[in-house]
Write a protein that binds this DNA or RNA. Sequence first.
RNA 1: GGCGACGUGGCCAAGUGGUAAGGCAGGGGCCUGCAAAGCCCUCAUCCGGCGGUUCGAAUCCGCCCGUCGCCUCCA
Length: 477
Amino acid sequence: MGGLRFYNTMTRSLESFEPLEQDHVRMYTCGPTVYNYVHIGNLRTFIFEDILRRTLQLFGYRVTQVMNLTDVDDKTIRDANAARIPLRELTDRYIEAFFEDIDTLRIQRAEHYPRATEYIPQMVELIKRLEAHGHTYRSGGSVYYSIATFPEYGKLSGVRLDKNIAGARVETDEYDKEDARDFVLWKAPKPGEPSWETELGPGRPGWHIECSAMSMSLLGETFDIHTGAVDNIFPHHENEIAQSQGATGQPFVRTWLHAEHLIVEGEKMAKSKGNFFTLRDLIARGYDPVAIRYLLLSVPYRQKLNFTFDGLHAAQQATERLANTLRRIETTPPAEEGSGCLSIDAIEAFRAAFRAGLADDLNTARALAALHTLLRQVNTALDHGGISGDVRTSLSHALNEADSVLDILPAHAGALPDEEATRIEALIEQRSTARQNRDFATADAIRDQLAREGIVLEDTPNGTLWKRKRQNPPEEK
RNA sequence: GGCGACGUGGCCAAGUGGUAAGGCAGGGGCCUGCAAAGCCCUCAUCCGGCGGUUCGAAUCCGCCCGUCGCCUCCA
């Protein structure tokens, strides 16, 4: 175990990772605000968190991951009101859609998905602790955090609020803050907004408090890793630190990891630019979820990821090639040990390179390069000496290990002799007979017919294989 | 105005002092009845530009040009 290195936003440096508990990592990953379908930018971050989680597991750690679901905020309230439905109905709908989407992308489930509205008592409790420590003030029925009482404020982001007021947009303050830099912990009730009766008075929570309350409730006052996208660094995570450490006096988080943004065709993704995509949009255009996953994980998380349809096409080709090679391995009988065979050394070199890539701050590009190199060696061996039974077992283990993190190889579907497959195989049988009789016209007619149905044939020394061709997405502009 | 990231072949991208991984696309060849799949060869004398440090830099320093992001609720 061990050997992992992560770039900690707090220290702005690469650090060796050691969890507080020897074999156990506790991490909090900022989740979605459930007022709409998640977009591919959100998913890039979730996939980074998935790779993080799986890498920790690969390196022997038990992981407890919490991902919050923000189900009360300005936008959820706005959209529920617009649709004239209860807030809960709106958020239930998009929570369900969220789980569908992460399943589609093979993102592993976290251990906990707390909803903000179910942690109101914990938030109130936390705010009371902050009050007891003198970090807050009340005004107009709201409770505010006084930045001036927390000297470390700004340490994570490097933002110095006193220095960048000029030029920044000046917010017209809807509430009554003493200082423009302060932020709200508890919002006074407003007409048309949900409100909770609490010891703080009626109202609803501010955005930042939920993450402090839920993370500490489920993971303890100090835990190992906190993640999100770069836009969360300021003010969200900065405020979380102020809230948590202001209340407990203990360090909040040991390692902060932040994913860079995804941009589209070189530009920030925005609904107004028409370059805004949800997972559902891409699936509807015929793209394969595994290709989308591949693309989103292929660029290391601290790099901006430029999402393009060319890139998605390339990802689709790459995943198809991986699948083809895997199929070759499975359908080729073991060879005798000999020259031209795949060596155990090649597999061990791959395992080392793959793990080294991930250990280096989740360098997925390096890990993928190692995988591609191995699979080329596999194909070369298959074309020449072959793969012996023993080597094949090791290969299989190594590939499973890699895919336990990447999850981009096709699932072993097993033999499923449904009617469709039976019919196709009967046609292939007819074609084989025709080929044996050198009746290529008939053979090709059968192949063409199947091709029109989206079935691709491959004649190999071990018989004719078939696969379903992925529907070719329409050309993008 | 403040803070920050980045600029490597047609596209994506690794590499942070020792002489350019990997993928996609392209070209040539092999295999095949023809395909498909796969393999082999090929594809950056060069890493935004100009200086500097060094025996040696894509990698360190300075300046310039360019792109992108954050600056109170956007992952």
